[in-house]
Design a protein around this nucleic acid. Structure first.
Lengths: 355, 355
DNA sequence: GTCGCGATAGAGAACCTTTGCTATACGATG
DNA sequence: CATCGTATAGCAAAGGTTCTCTATCGCGAC
């Protein structure tokens, strides 16, 4: 691997001159020297050493994205957005799947810090874990200390996201849409309570009901994991309960997908027997059966803007926070409420039959 | 940001001693000095500079994964596998979505080379593009030159993958399964012909038919893009053609999903009117309606083993190539052939109605 | 008492690049 | 002709770490 020294030697100039040609600094270099350096660099297949550069500038053109799980379509989409924006500036994207584990998250951030990543973007929501958050903050402060940018796309312990959506308003809008369809007994699969974003969406649920003048029935709020298994479990909990409901609003699409599966398995039809709504509008939402009513989040654009925000931070700007719009998408999983609300007696038979 | 110099100063030792304590080299350091160094490092919140380390060792603990598109569940799953294996060794994973564009792929590899990534894993198939492949090879050779590992999980211009599956046998097995169901007229949505993996799967199709003693009808082979849109387009082509078919075997699940959608849109039922099979077994395959019959690839495990292979390469090993098993999964999208094969006359009406 | 060896510690080079400062040369201006 | 300014080029330091030598010390062996 040729270094700039060898390029300089071959070109018959000093490394300083070679560097000035190769790194495109605006420093006057005679046309002859420039040509010889370029020629030598090409002959030697010279590629600058980003580590040496980074050592000097205390930063390397790499942006880390902390996600909960890259196989979750939500995060894959956001990462793609970051990647697309980053590619333009010659940045590389590091994907870190934390599995919502504070320990793992911190170890990733530490690694990012050790290699002087220019930016960290937290795609997912923060966890409410004071001890860990203190340690996280220490690492992030250190990163800011060498000039790195830190951006959150979701609510977290240190405040509101720099780039994000209004989760509360989004869920409230979906509740309003369900109410408009005639639903009054709307259950809510809330996701994990330790996640800030889940809390925000839960607030949206309460707020949406309040706006419609409907009292909250706490028995209809179910805390779950934030994935398909959580959606299935949530349905079981609701069906085993006493509180009637005609619709299930889910804090994200994965929950809704799981709920839909479970309902189908126990012989309850959507939307005929119960309406189901999701949140996020991941790509599969459009092709499930029935297709999923949900709230569209501009995921890829969030990724792009997240990187854009980081970039401006890196130039010393202090850009204002951005809140992006959400949109209710009504597909086939929601409809008017059934004549008889769930849970019904026959469900017990149905569940036995399916189990 | 404290450097090792400051840690050494605070501990009252030389940087050499501090380094020996902190980098866990097996060099005798007195217990007293060791304790003071550790204490100082903690007090100063010292985190080693990976760039400086990398500059010296000409390698940084980072592995790049070249994928076609991280939002494609196939690749997300592979990346997750790499990530899980890499985390154990303190490696970070860089995701590069090339969009099957040779230009983009090369620019990513160049970037990876410039930052001295310890390994590159090509998760997706290579493209048949001689000029670009020459340039790619140059970069890869340079990377091997500084000690990096290069691993392919799919066929490519330079030969067989180091870790992968037998695509040909996998598709042939699915063809056999369809034949066992009674199908004789099986169409094939092949994906792009420029992709080595698509060619391999097409060979599997021909081979599977040959084994069943069925002649290939070239009109039933349709080259398409490798995504849902390609699947839909492929169905249109088949329906517009004259050749009868009772089943569609697709070179990957995304194609099958697109085919299923399009069939439903034009009023053709699966599996009653036509059977549809996919390949890969991405997570959604199990929850579509009808659920998709497909061939399971151990995607996450491929990622894990791909990293494992790279790791062994880095230690100077010459591990043998690994071929992993595939498994035919019959779900609801396949069944016995219908009495009358497609294309039927009434389809034209149906298509008009849907368009 | 001296020699040699093992255990421990430190000095300094090397990895590659950029950049501030200095140096040279040449044309222009007085 | 002397002086200055400008255009171009090079020297050398710095960035943080590791590693190869070299140095010191204490101790056992002869």
């Amino acid at each position: 691997m040729a270094s700039i020294t060898e390029v300089a030697r071959l070109a018959g100039v000093s490394t300083a001159t070679a560097s000035r040609v190769l790194s495109a600094a605006d420093y006057a270099v005679s046309a002859g020297a420039r040509a010889r350096v370029l020629e030598a660099a090409q002959r030697l297949d010279y590629v600058p050493n980003a580590l040496a550069r980074g050592l000097l500038s205390s930063k390397i053109p790499v942006v880390g994205v902390i996600v909960h799980d890259i196989t979750d379509p939500y995060f894959a989409e956001v990462v793609r957005g970051v990647e697309d924006a980053a590619a333009g500036g010659g940045y590389l994207v590091i994907t870190c799947s934390s599995d919502r584990d504070a320990e793992r998250e911190i170890s990733y951030v530490r690694l990012l810090r050790s290699m002087r990543a220019a930016a960290v973007i937290f795609a997912g929501s923060g966890l409410d874990d004071p001890a860990r958050n203190e340690e996280l903050r220490r690492h992030l402060d250190a990163m800011r200390g060498y000039g790195a940018a830190v951006v959150h796309l979701s609510p977290h312990a240190f405040g509101e996201p720099e780039v994000g959506v209004d989760n509360e308003a989004g869920i409230a809008a979906m509740i309003a849409a369900l109410v408009a369809l005639g639903h009054r007994r709307i259950a809510f699969l809330a996701g994990p309570t330790s996640l800030y974003v889940a809390r925000e969406r839960l607030r949206g649920y309460r707020c949406g009901l309040a706006e419609a003048g409907i009292a909250v029935d706490e028995r209809l709020i179910v805390a779950t994991r934030f994935d398909r298994a959580g959606g299935a479990a949530g349905v079981d909990t609701l069906l085993a309960g006493e509180a009637p409901f005609s619709a299930i609003c889910c804090a994200n699409d994965l929950l809704a997908l799981g709920a839909l599966e479970r309902l189908a398995a126990v012989g309850i039809r959507a939307p005929d027997d119960v309406s189901v709504a999701g949140f996020d509008d991941i790509a599969v939402a459009a092709i499930t059966a029935p297709s999923l009513s949900t709230v569209r989040l501009p995921l890829r654009e969030m990724g792009r803007r997240g990187f854009g925000f980081a970039e401006r931070l890196l130039t010393g700007d202090e850009p204002p926070a951005e809140v992006m719009a959400t949109e209710v998408i009504l597909r086939a999983s929601t409809g008017r409420p059934a004549a008889r609300a769930l849970p019904r007696d026959e469900r017990r038979t149905a569940r036995k039959g399916a189990a």
